[in-house]
Design a protein around this nucleic acid. Structure first.
Lengths: 160, 160
DNA sequence: GATAATTGATCAGTATGCTGATTATCAGTA
DNA sequence: TACTGATAATCAGCATACTGATCAATTATC
């Protein structure tokens, strides 16, 4: 029987734990209380103002039911505004606030730094290769989780 | 600004989501209701009968407060027995039950299969390299999370 | 042997992440 | 127009993960 500790699923869980811990530590050191998930949402909304929650979920590969709570907390912190859409009364349009924009800009250096820390055991070439393999594996497995990445088509992106 | 979707932290989160989904799907297809975390705990206890919860946490890199709930649920399912230790009345000794052993043996092929599915986008060489890089990065970052791996020393292992 | 420091387990609280259901709304069709 | 199906958001419930605290028991120190 293979040692469970040496299975890819287990290794990934451990690296994910390290990645989250490093992210939070770097963000806190920079004076921000933001989780990786909250940062990703904030960043995506900043680049796509006015999107609804389902589109946001697809952009960053979140589960749709998880989004509600994440957005709740960002609204609570004053970093996002959530308003009913006039085009579709089921949907909520998400906008980043002034403070959200300042937070995003302020925390980004810490986020970049965190990526280096979590990969500190790898050389530059190894980091590139690691990310290439991650991208490749994720692309092949995208549809296997309930929260696949959904690229916004050119149609949706320009118009709406 | 770098696309958040292309940062290692984000890529790892997505791969972890896929890995968990694949694991659960394969386990369910084989007739078992077991999470990756529960499998890891069961497996570790099976190979180290009588260990306490802190040692278990170190063996598989869990947070000590998470272990309580995981063990609770495995005891609930009848796969584990948890008894107070006579050597240290603070500690609980964990034993795998007959049914736990049957479950472990029965589900293991599905667990092995899951590892292949989650890496289906990679060639055999790429899988090896991916795991090598994961191991290397984790080793370097082990102490950065609250749940580092703690190998059982020869001393502790033989005795008890 | 008394005291201090440490340790094993648990708990309260918070944040992802999932399954499956519900509600309101929208879109297509007979 | 009435009906059907699909969709956006939310909810209840469950399972990881973490922070920080508490309690009981053990170990170390004086």
């Amino acid at each position: 029987m293979r040692d469970n500790n040496d299975m890819p699923g287990h290794l990934v869980r451990r690296f994910q734990q390290i990645a989250v811990a490093v992210f939070r530590a770097e963000a806190e050191a920079a004076g921000y209380d933001l989780t990786p998930v909250q940062y990703a949402a904030l960043s995506a909304i900043g680049m796509n103002p006015g999107i609804d929650q389902v589109t946001l979920a697809g952009l960053i590969a979140y589960d749709r039911t998880t989004i509600t709570g994440v957005v709740d907390r960002l609204v609570q912190k004053g970093l996002l505004a959530r308003n009913p859409s006039r085009k579709d009364r089921r949907a909520r349009e998400l906008q980043i606030t002034e403070e959200g924009m300042r937070t995003l800009q302020g925390v980004t250096p810490a986020v970049e730094a965190a990526q280096g820390v979590m990969l500190r055991g790898l050389t530059e070439e190894e980091r590139e290769e690691f990310m290439r393999l991650l991208r490749k594996a994720i692309t092949a497995g995208n549809e296997l989780s309930r929260a696949p990445l959904r690229e916004v088509s050119a149609d949706e992106a320009k118009g709406s």
